[in-house]
């Protein structure tokens, strides 16, 4: 399944995030939007760990608030200090 979609994106020259299940991170000031995540691994005021296709996505910060959380998208605010992806490979 994953291979198919990757193939399609290569063939048709689509942007990867449109087709794929890869996470897309958009960080504007104190707002962070993460799309295509697969689950919440851990959530604390200073730490958010999300499960993604690439592995665990760690967001470090201070007084983090999830403004909205949809099945595939999360909107995070607060003082974000670091983002770290722990690749599976």
């Amino acid at each position: 399944m994953k291979r198919m979609s990757q193939l399609a994106s290569d063939w048709f020259d689509f942007p990867a995030e449109v087709v794929g299940t890869l996470p897309r991170i958009e960080w504007i000031g104190q707002r962070l939007q993460i799309e295509n995540f697969q689950g919440v691994h851990q959530f604390n005021p200073d730490l958010l760990i999300l499960k993604t296709a690439n592995g665990l996505l760690t967001v470090k910060g201070d007084s983090l608030v999830m403004e909205a959380i949809y099945p595939d998208r999360v909107l995070l605010t607060g003082k974000i200090t670091a983002i770290h992806i722990n690749n599976k490979e």
Binding site: G39, Q42, F43, M66, E67, I69, P71
Partner: peptide, 27 residues
């Protein structure tokens, strides 16, 4: 197991908003 709970809720396609820690135990 709040993180787990949040995960399950999100998996069940429920939309949450203003998820915020009040103190170390309560969210």
């Amino acid at each position: 197991h709040i993180s787990l709970l949040l995960d399950q809720i999100v998996q069940a396609k429920v939309v949450l908003s203003h998820v915020k820690w009040v103190n170390n135990e309560k969210v």
